[in-house]
Design a protein around this nucleic acid. Structure first.
Length: 276
DNA sequence: CTACCATCCTGGTTGC
DNA sequence: TGCAACCAGGATGGTA
């Protein structure tokens, strides 16, 4: 489920249930997700109080009172679900259950196991191998057209692929790359280095706008729940092009229809009239 | 550098 | 209805 808006939504859903709470027990049902869980994972969390929950790129960060941080990535199919009251029956693909001293517990479920959970020191996060090299946060105040153009300079790869490169900008995935390019009027095939100046300004702006609008909508729910509460995000109803092959281009009177192409093994949706 | 491919894994949808 | 092929929100590593 997860690009930046979905991960942000999950963090906001988790925070009220975790911040200030103590992990009373952690049930670990699997040793390895995308990477192995740390040694003594459950023991290192048990008894710790959560001080904050936030996000970097598509990573969920759960900060603990001993200076450790739990890093979680949802991959393609990961979910963090909040369960109230007594333990419900374990569901298929529930890998870790976090019990707190509150009324509820959090379950990490991931059918495909492309997600990961690990631990790091909060004072060394930016040097952690998962974070070293990540580009700017698109909703942060360091991201703008100038910064984007600098990251794209000299890159002869298609702009669509460049937006998916987490070193260029952190947190954009397949859906929002398509949407941002559409709103910027840029062809997904355009070579990245040609996006500079006004084009880069425009693209930086549309990336920011589409992500912000998606967060306000609670993210997008395709096949899965997004919000930890189990509610559905609804930004998918506002997609201009993503998964809309054959639909009329929605934003103008160009009369063209949305097309699909494959780039770097991923589907790209676009309007060839509007996007140049 | 670049493009391209395969890989990790499961499940839902589509088409015959 | 059965079954196989194909597709999926991500990231990485290898090859030419």
């Amino acid at each position: 489920m997860p690009e930046l808006p979905e991960v942000e939504t999950v963090c906001r859903g988790l925070a009220p249930h975790l911040v200030g709470r103590v992990f009373t027990a952690v049930d670990q049902h699997r040793d390895t997700l995308r990477i192995p869980l740390p040694d003594d994972f459950a023991a290192r969390l048990t008894g710790r109080r959560v001080t904050a929950v936030n996000r970097r790129a598509k990573y969920i960060l759960v900060h603990l009172d001993d200076g450790a941080v739990m890093i979680a990535h949802l991959g393609m199919s990961g979910r963090m679900m909040i369960h109230h009251g007594a333990d419900p029956a374990r569901q298929r693909h529930d890998h870790v259950v976090f019990h707190t001293d509150g009324d509820d517990h959090v379950v990490f479920n991931d059918a495909r196991r492309f997600g990961l959970i690990t631990l790091a020191r909060s004072d060394a996060l930016e040097e952690h191998r998962l974070f070293a090299g990540l580009g700017p946060e698109p909703l942060g105040n360091t991201f703008n057209g100038t910064v984007l153009a600098a990251a794209l300079k000299g890159k002869r790869t298609p702009i669509k692929a460049a937006l998916l490169d987490q070193r260029v900008v952190a947190g954009v995935g397949n859906i929002y790359a398509c949407e941002a390019l559409y709103h910027a009027g840029l062809s997904p095939r355009r070579l990245a280095y040609t996006v500079a100046g006004q084009r880069a300004e425009r693209l930086a702006r549309t990336v920011r706008q589409v992500l912000t609008a998606a967060i306000e909508a609670g993210g997008s729910s395709l096949r899965d729940y997004v919000q930890s509460s189990g509610e559905l995000g609804y930004f998918q109803h506002r997609f201009a092009v993503y998964d809309r092959e054959g639909d009329r281009c929605p934003g103008c009177d160009c009369g063209a229809s949305v097309r699909r192409l494959v780039q770097a093994g991923r589907s790209t949706f676009y309007c060839s009239r509007r996007q140049r």
